[in-house]
């Protein structure tokens, strides 16, 4: 995917576009990148989700400078080593741009490196920029990111409370091993009286492990609306029609209209 032309037009003022178009490979990308927020703007431009055969990217959180950075990378084609250097020695904004723009390029070794860096450095803005609002992480696994690294990333995502649903396509890499890790974190949090990741039940329902069904059924009776809704979705994801009766039992007692709607939809889907 390259940056769609309508996005370029929407995000960049003509003067900014002209300046970008005047740049060439003789210029040092490390000197150019930090200028982008000042020259092109640092506010979201109102982008929307774009889906194609090979990419799924929601431009809603993208800022004008992110679009400019993607355009710059497309134009100057930095090596993986250069991209790693831009991240390593970039300021906060530069790092965010390096991370967010990966979504419109093919997943490769550099993507995998940056995913590990995001996980290691644990700066929420940079994690969000890299792993949310696109299918980049899912494509990275397809391209060779070891499944162990993926599992650890999801666990870190749970740890810092980011939404799994905004990691488009990641559900296809769910596994029983991941479910066990996420369940164990939830148990640990519950024992400590700490908040549990709201997506726990959604993720474990995708690939049940020992203990998953009990947790999902318990989730149906949870006092927190978010956990109950995720439990309904998790039960649907298991595809286990035996669990239908528990949804039926919960429906008349469910006080929240939106969750009742979810249960009714789930029952229709499993008919």
């Amino acid at each position: 995917m390259v940056i769609p032309s309508d996005i370029l037009t929407q995000a960049l003022q003509p003067a900014a576009r002209e300046w970008l178009d005047s740049l060439d490979a003789s210029q040092d990308i490390a000197v150019l990148l930090p200028q982008l927020p000042r020259r092109t703007g640092r506010d979201p431009f109102g982008g929307t989700r774009h889906t194609s055969d090979d990419h799924d990217v929601d431009f809603a959180p993208w800022r004008s400078c992110d679009v400019a950075a993607a355009h710059l990378f497309e134009k100057l084609n930095p090596t993986g080593e250069q991209l790693r250097d831009l991240f390593a020695h970039g300021d906060f904004e530069e790092r965010a741009m390096v991370m967010r723009t990966r979504a419109v390029f093919p997943a490769d070794d550099t993507t995998c490196h940056l995913i590990l860096e995001a996980q290691r450095t644990n700066t929420q803005d940079h994690m969000e920029a890299l792993i949310l609002d696109s299918d980049l992480v899912a494509r990275a696994v397809d391209a060779g990111l070891p499944i162990d690294d993926f599992n650890r990333l999801i666990l870190k995502t749970a740890f810092v409370d980011l939404p799994f649903g905004r990691m488009f396509g990641s559900e296809r890499h769910a596994s029983a091993e991941l479910s066990t890790m996420v369940q164990d974190l939830a148990t640990e949090r519950e024992a400590a009286g700490r908040k549990v990741w709201y997506d726990t039940n959604r993720v474990i329902g995708l690939a049940p492990a020992p203990g998953t069904i009990a947790r999902l059924l318990g989730g149906l009776e949870h006092g927190d609306d978010n956990h109950r809704l995720a439990a309904v979705e998790g039960i649907v994801s298991t595809g286990d029609t035996e669990l239908r009766k528990y949804l039926e039992a919960r429906l008349p007692r469910e006080p929240k209209p939106s969750i009742r709607d979810a249960i009714e939809s789930a029952l229709q889907a499993t008919t």
């Binding site: 490390a30 000197v31 930090p34 927020p37 300021d91 530069e94």
Partner: peptide, 9 residues
């Protein structure tokens, strides 16, 4: 120095 001279702060 040139790359650092362009940092925002």
């Amino acid at each position: 120095l040139p790359r650092y001279c362009e940092k925002d702060s």
